[in-house]
Design a protein around this nucleic acid. Sequence first.
DNA 1: GAACGCGCATTACCTTTGTTATGACCAGGG
DNA 2: CCCTGGTCATAACAAAGGTAATGCGCGTTC
Lengths: 254, 254
Amino acid sequence: MTTHTDSDRQSAFTKYLRRLVLRSDLTAGEQAAIATLPGEFTEIGPQRDMVSPGRTMNYACLVVTGLAARFDQLANGQRQFTALHIPGDMCDLHSVPAPVAGWGIQALTSTLYLKVPHLALRALIDNHPALALAFWRDTIVDASILSKWISALGRRSAEARLAHLLCEVAIRLEQSGEGTRRQFRLRATQIHIADFLGISTVHVSRSLQSLRARGLVEVQDYTYLLPDFPALAHFAEFDPTYLLLNEPSVHEPT
Amino acid sequence: MTTHTDSDRQSAFTKYLRRLVLRSDLTAGEQAAIATLPGEFTEIGPQRDMVSPGRTMNYACLVVTGLAARFDQLANGQRQFTALHIPGDMCDLHSVPAPVAGWGIQALTSTLYLKVPHLALRALIDNHPALALAFWRDTIVDASILSKWISALGRRSAEARLAHLLCEVAIRLEQSGEGTRRQFRLRATQIHIADFLGISTVHVSRSLQSLRARGLVEVQDYTYLLPDFPALAHFAEFDPTYLLLNEPSVHEPT
DNA sequence: GAACGCGCATTACCTTTGTTATGACCAGGG
DNA sequence: CCCTGGTCATAACAAAGGTAATGCGCGTTC
């Protein structure tokens, strides 16, 4: 069991800050206020639930290392993932204004995260009104991804959905400095991917084979290589606008 | 062409206010500030786009009468609806912090709506910080519906999705005073419903026949009768929690 | 080092949903 | 009064994806 210092905490919030300032201009004071937020470090094993559906939350979860997924659960126990959270993501910021969880959050790998008290976040908003806007915008990024995902689930083939997911992950990991759009590590099993795509594990395997055969994707030990990102993006009809990055660099082919 | 007075405008905003106060406590001053927002009345015919994808917005759309749908469009022109907007809904409140539309909005019937300038909404937030929270929460309701819709699209049969959509519409229309959960009017064609459910129109017809055969739904001239709402809700695994209404009454069977 | 569990691939078969086409009905316009 | 276009139902067939089962490789554990 590692112990975590204040400086670990501060560097975790800096990671989140990097995500925020991609979309909002914040003053030095506002940035400092975020960097010094309180939060309790928590570690959890793979396949365990960080948040179980139906709970009333009094903190939000900031992923520090690892991988987590928001999910909705059916009566028969089947899960559908509705969001993927990489390090630097605040999983359930929306729980601040809406604390009754309709969702659950599952760790896909061993995951280290911070429990950030709602009280502290609310105080932050009261003292820095501009941060309310930034948080609101952060929620909108989330909603924008949900929205794009609906059209993928409703109208695209399983293979196209898989390609789209890989494109999105590639860009998001690149943005957060955890890899490049050409090569990155995604420690999610095919069971997890099935829960994202809304298909069976058998069909994940089939679809992945198909993308391999097209020469668009190579995988080894959870490390993905996209030899021709623009071609994959074209195949997936992936347009990163919905990630609200406003960075022209993102739109250029590598 | 009807002309619209200030009092028409004020009553339109009161409708929106009703939606807001379902989820947020607002002071009289805050409520008055919303009721006196500016906005330009606009009328549009069925199947026309109120917002075309990719535009940069400087106003948000408040539906006064009619029916509208947010959509995402594929390269081949196929549409997937991502949200349904009934009178009293602010379709694209999220355009205030994120003005570049990744979405489009289509009128399903003849629709009257207000173009509410972003400038006015931003000024409102500056003067009444509590409203930032209320708007944020309103966005979260939207996201929560998106999220639920993802799990329906990913994991439920077409028939169950249709049932779920009808349950949601029943509750939302009841809340906004446009009908009851037992009987309401929904002027959407089967083409529209197909665009919501992510299926073909043929399959909408099939699924509806199937719900009819089960005795769960009757339709005549776009008027839906749900003879046994709890049974339909059970079939659809519909739990209204995700609408964030916090009203115990909603959870009681009729 | 044998037994076990997990993740992945693959096959055979079955179910759900899409596609294409047709006809009925109805409202509106010349 | 007929023609036209939109909406809905239905049928026959095709394609996408689900289910169940098996085998393989690999790391863990005792």
